[in-house]
Amino acid sequence: MGTYVVRRILASFFVIFGLITVVFFLMRLLPGDPVSLMMTEFAAAAEDMERIREQLGLNDPILVQYVRYLGNLVQGDLGESVFTHRAVSAQVLSQLPATLELAVASTLIGVVFGVVTGIFAAAWRDSIFDRLSMLVSLFFISMPSFWVGLLFIYVFALHLGWFPVAGTGGLSHLVLPAVALGMRPIAVLSRVVRTSMLEVLRQDFVQTARAKGVLERRILFGHALRNVLIPVITLIGIQFGYALGGSVIIETVFGRQGIGQLAVGAVQKHDYPLVQGTVLFIGIVFVFANLIVDLLYGIIDPRIRYS
C-alpha cells in the first residue's frame, strides 16, 4: 500500500505541473492578444496598452515569462487582477469554500439517490419502476443544468417561497443549486449501478446465497452492493469534476459566490491573470479529487495496488 500511495501522489504532482505548463502556454500561444481584447471596450490609447503589456510582463520572451511564472507560483503568487488589483490567489482562496460546498453537496445527492435508484431498478428489473427510472434518468442527463436551476427558482423560490432566490449562505441557499447540479450525477450513477448490479446478480455467489435462503434484502445490500462500489467510486471522481465544471454555470444562475462565477466574470472581462488562476485552481482541485478516488480504490480493491 505504501508504494502505491507514493506513486499516486507523485503522479498527481506530475499532472499538476503539466496543468500549470499547459494552461500557461495555451493562454500565451493561442491567437488573440489579451491586452487588446481586454481594452476593446475602452478604446484605450496605444501607450496604455503598452504599459499594461509591460506590467504583465508580456513583452519578455515566452520562456522567461514561464520561468518567472513558475517562480512566483512556488511562492503562492498567481499575479493580481488587472481591474481590481487584488491578488488572484487571495480571491480564489476566498471563493473556494463555496464552490467545494456546492460540488460536494451535489455529488453526495447524486451518489445517494443514484445508488438507491440503481439498486431497486436492478432488483425489480423490467418493472415499471425500472423502465420509468431509466427513461427519466436519460431525461435528467439531457437537461441543461442552468435551465433546471431557473425552473427551480421559478417554482420553489418565486412561487412557493421555500428557498431564497439567490445568494450564498446557509443550507437554504445550498439546496436548490446542489439539487440542480445533482440531477445529472443521479442519472448517471443510477444507470451504471443498475448495469453493474445486474451483472453481479447473475454471478455464482449470489445464486449460492439465494439457494442458502439468504434474504433478498441482504443479498442486494450486502453481497451485491459491495461489488458495485468500484464503478461507483470511479464515477464519484468523474462526477465531482463535472460538478466543478458545472459550478461555472450554476453559480451564475443562483448568484452564488465561488470560483466558477469568478472564472466566468474573468473571461467576460478578459482579466488575464484571473482567468489563468481560476482555471488552474479548479484543475488542481479536480486532480486532488481524482487522487483521493485512486487511493480509495487501493483500499477497497487490493488487486489495484499491485497492477
Binding site: V22, L30, L244, V267, V279, F286
Partner: peptide
Amino acid sequence: MRLIDVLMAMPGILLTMIFIFSLGP
C-alpha cells in the same frame, strides 16, 4: 498521451473557456 492526460485533468468547460478567452465570444 501525457499532454492528453493533462488536458483531460480539467473539467471540459474550462478548456473551452480558455479557447473562448483567446478567440472572443
